[in-house]
């Protein structure tokens, strides 16, 4: 499916309204608002320190927002931890993948969600469903009984993404997923991302590498100094425009962002 056909009318699965975050006196985010729809890939781009990671940790339930609110399918949610976010259907594929190296693929897919039969773990069901989940992914794995430490980088990515599917998430946040991978493996991971979108999930891709995510993203949100510098539909924008947003921020934002960053710290 070509990106041009991406679903612009999908249901709004996740909406952030006026998100702000202060770390003590340091402001990391101000007035961040956006939404993401079913069947869409939203790339969040920005230079180092633009606020991407803080924003992602708020969406994933790892941080509390200081201001603003998060809506999941139109209902306001307050997450007290990553588990609550994932129970609401927002799951994060962490940059470190959060895999247990010594355990096999199936145990990792069902980590913290193991099926039980009476007193015992339902191993048969776990291995069977693990097999099904992985056969749905384009990236092949030797077996669901192989420990993670024997897998390649791309295969680990597949396991981490597969785990998100086990949780039944429909908004999937991927944090700098391709940063550590070679060209070929990055392309495979981006193919997984397109597969997720085509199956009706909303995917939020965090990256500082515009070239890598440009072809996969339907819309691009650019963060600059803790604010949204702009949201563009890919087909109606250009790499040039996005780069300008990343570097300079929105044209009219310069004058009023005085309360961002170091000015408060200077008083100390």
């Amino acid at each position: 499916m070509s990106p041009e056909m991406a679903n612009q009318d999908g249901e709004v699965l996740l909406e952030a309204r006026g998100i702000g975050k202060l770390f003590g006196h340091v402001r990391a985010l101000k007035d961040v608002s956006f939404d993401v729809r079913a069947g869409e890939v939203l790339a969040i781009l920005g230079d180092n320190g633009a606020g991407k990671s803080t924003l992602i940790k708020i969406l994933a339930g790892a941080y509390d927002p200081t201001e603003g609110a998060i809506f999941v399918r139109g209902v306001e949610k307050v997450f007290s931890g990553p588990r609550e976010a994932s129970d609401s259907g927002i799951a994060t594929v962490y940059q470190d993948l959060a895999l247990v190296e010594t355990r096999d693929v199936a145990a990792n897919l069902f980590l913290g969600r193991e099926y039980r039969r009476g007193l015992f773990v339902d191993r048969r069901r776990i291995y069977r469903e693990a097999q099904q989940i992985l056969s749905g992914l384009t990236l092949r794995l030797p077996s669901v009984r192989v420990p993670i430490y024997l897998l390649s980088g791309g295969q680990r990515q597949a396991v981490a993404i597969g785990r998100v599917l086990v949780g039944g998430a429909d908004v999937i946040i991927m944090d700098e997923q391709t940063a550590a991978l070679g060209v070929q493996e990055s392309e495979r991971v981006l193919q997984l991302v397109r597969d997720l979108r085509d199956s009706g999930k909303a995917v939020i891709l965090i990256s500082h590498n515009l070239q890598q995510v440009w072809q996969t993203a339907d819309r691009v949100l650019v963060m600059h100094l803790g604010r949204v510098a702009g949201i563009r539909t890919r087909t109606q924008s250009s790499i040039d425009e996005i780069v300008k947003l990343i570097v300079y921020g929105a044209d009219d934002s310069g004058a009023e962002d005085d309360d961002l960053g170091t000015d408060v710290k200077d008083e100390q």
């Binding site: 990391a28 180092n48 803080t54 310069g254 005085d258 960053g261 170091t262």
Partner: peptide, 24 residues
């Protein structure tokens, strides 16, 4: 006037201040 803040000053570049972190 554009903010003079350098990107390195951001809390997410490793200097995360302790306040506000819940599970850390």
């Amino acid at each position: 006037m554009r903010s003079t803040r350098s990107p390195e000053a951001s809390p997410e570049n490793g200097g995360a201040p302790g306040a506000g972190l819940r599970i850390t």
